[in-house]
């Protein structure tokens, strides 16, 4: 992982260079509605609403030519209305280096980032670490339009459970995936931002369902899942998801904004375990 190797070097560079670090503090709070929280096929679909909040402290060091190194820590929590077993707290850290190719507002940029969070759920079989590495590039096209592309690798290592089925791993909540995201933003007004994007994700998905031999045969792991009911199993499957997302952001002032994001996605997973879901998120974001 190039990003992991780069971060210590870049941090050392930050310490030794004549740059100045700036602290910023960000907070988010919002509601999310997931039409298929359990990533299930039609008969087993369960939806829920969640309250989510995040606070983060970021130190950014700028270098000549517009490059920057940022790193910090965050705390995030989610609280679900119907399935409190999914309530969780995440504590983590992140770092990213952004390089501007040239001078000015329209210079393209590259970014490499990494984050790690420790996840603690009420239903503690899901507890574990979530690691993410991002490589992104973007460019502002004019005063209104900007585009970006982001490749993400993520790995989730959860507590391994006892085998629920003989011969099948119980490590259902671990996994890794790669995601490619293409996005654009359009500033419709001084305080009005529209966004649209698409993504493709390939890797492990956790799909919840009743006992199903066909799905079990295709699963890399399976475990009992007490969150959605005693008769439900969590299957770790290899799947490919594709989706579209649209967003609307309204500035509430110089330091805060309200965003509404709508996302639709379909997943084709092993064992013909195909499902679709929609996610709507309303979030207040503040920067201090």
């Amino acid at each position: 992982m190039i990003a992991f190797a780069l971060i210590p070097f870049l941090m050392a560079l930050a310490v030794t260079s004549p740059a100045q670090a700036q602290w910023s503090f960000d907070a988010q709070a919002g509601l999310r509605q997931d039409s298929n929280l359990d990533n299930a096929r039609a008969d087993d679909i369960l939806s829920d609403n969640a309250f989510a909040a995040t606070v983060a402290a970021t130190q950014t060091t700028f270098f000549d030519r517009g490059d920057s190194l940022s790193w910090g820590g965050l705390a995030a929590t989610e609280s679900y209305a119907r399935f409190p077993g999914l309530n969780n707290l995440a504590l983590g850290g992140f770092a990213a280096f952004r390089h501007k190719i040239g001078l000015g507002a329209y210079a393209p940029w590259l970014r490499a980032g990494w984050s790690s969070s420790r996840l603690s759920y009420v239903n503690n079989v899901r507890d574990g670490w979530l690691h993410r590495a991002d490589f992104a590039a973007g460019k502002r096209l004019d005063e209104r339009w900007s585009v970006s592309a982001n490749y993400r690798f993520e790995a989730h290592s959860a507590t391994t459970q006892a085998q629920a089925e003989p011969g099948v791993s119980g490590d259902a909540f671990s996994g890794h995936a790669q995601t490619l995201i293409l996005g654009t933003e359009y500033a419709a007004g001084a305080g009005l931002l529209l966004s649209a994007g698409g993504f493709a994700r390939h890797g492990d998905v956790v799909s919840i369902g009743r006992d199903d031999d066909r799905v079990l045969a295709a699963a890399k792991a399976a475990a009992n899942d007490g969150v959605f009911g005693a008769d439900r199993y969590a299957y770790r499957l290899v799947g490919t998801s594709c989706g579209l997302a649209f967003g609307l952001g309204v500035a509430l002032g110089p330091r805060s904004r309200l965003t509404l994001d709508v996302q639709r996605q379909v997943t084709h997973a092993a064992g013909d375990n195909n499902y679709a879901k929609g996610i709507e998120t309303l979030t207040w974001i503040g920067s201090f």
């Binding site: 900007s146 970006s148 933003e185 967003g247 500035a251 996302q263």
Partner: peptide
């Protein structure tokens, strides 16, 4: 005329 807005989004961060 339109100037680059002070705030921008964080597209790509919110995909679930």
């Amino acid at each position: 005329t339109f100037h680059i807005p002070r705030q921008s989004g964080s597209h790509g961060a919110g995909y679930h």
